[in-house]
């Protein structure tokens, strides 16, 4: 019996990947198109990049987005790692069912509901909406993703090492810092990157929770798209895709090095 992939298997994989990557490759190509039209190739040009770097509103939005991303991803990773430790290492504790429910529910919860409920919270307490409210909202949304990523690593990690540290007289905190943390560090880093990317990408929750002066990049892009397709957006897309690709490749190379030295 044949074990390898058949022609049909290969064709479905190739077509599937083509479908996934077409809308990523297109903006990159068209960001260098001198023509405004998608169907006309007007020659190679960097005019849309030049226009982009003169668009102050867009640059402001990039600044806001990066600040929100850094702070919220750091908060989310910290809280998410605690949550993952509690879920995998604490056994049964009071409120565990409710806790795990609150960890998994935001993963599938429609964003409009999260955005609306957080906005009502901020309004109820009279907090002025701005960069901080968006940051808190993003930390809440991404905390759960961070928890799931770290949890996956904790589940696969050999518990006997921690038990050995405890037997040798380490306190649980010391055992965590000296044994567990170094072992889950790659997952913690991945969790941070995921939280950062999700924050960078979010339109719906940011729209509900932001105020004047805290327009994020997706909100800016969204309002531009509503006005009509602008080639400047292709330039932003290309820069974002480049940023993410660099991050992912760097992470991959670091992992390869670790594997080679291990």
């Amino acid at each position: 019996m044949k074990r390898g992939p058949s022609f049909f298997n290969l064709a479905s994989v190739v077509l599937g990947l083509a479908f996934l990557y077409l809308p990523i490759v297109l903006p990159v190509i068209y960001s260098f198109n001198a023509s405004r039209l998608v169907t006309v190739w007007g020659g190679f040009s960097t005019r849309w990049y030049a226009a982009l770097f003169q668009d102050e509103q867009m640059l402001d939005a990039v600044g806001v987005t990066l600040r929100v991303g850094f702070v919220s991803a750091t908060l989310a990773t910290l809280l998410g790692t605690f949550a993952a430790v509690a879920l995998t290492r604490s056994g049964r504790f009071p409120g565990r069912t409710l806790f795990s429910g609150m960890i998994y529910a935001p993963l599938v919860m429609p964003e409009v509901i999260l955005g609306l409920s957080l906005l009502l919270l901020f309004v109820a307490f009279g907090l002025p909406r701005g960069v901080w409210t968006v940051t808190v909202a993003h930390a809440t949304m991404t905390l759960c993703y961070a928890a799931v990523v770290v949890q996956a690593r904790l589940v696969g990690f050999d518990r006997t090492l921690e038990e050995a540290a405890l037997d040798l007289g380490r306190t649980p905190l010391q055992a965590f810092l000296e044994v567990t943390l170094p072992n889950i560090a790659p997952a913690v880093a991945a969790a941070w990157m995921l939280a950062f990317t999700l924050s960078l990408d979010d339109l719906v929750i940011a729209s509900f929770t932001s105020g004047p002066g805290s327009t994020t990049l997706p909100m800016r892009i969204y309002s531009q798209v509503r006005l009509g397709v602008s080639p400047e957006i292709n330039a932003v897309s290309t820069l974002l895709i480049g940023l993410v690709a660099t991050g992912v490749i760097a992470a991959y190379l670091v992992q390869q090095r670790r594997r080679a030295t291990a």
Partner: peptide, 20 residues
């Protein structure tokens, strides 16, 4: 001590996810 690590994320999600 069980579940002590859950305290901070528990409170956070209680305030910013469940309560709203």
């Amino acid at each position: 001590r069980r579940g002590l690590a859950a305290l901070a994320p528990f409170l956070w999600l209680g305030v910013f996810f469940a309560f709203p």
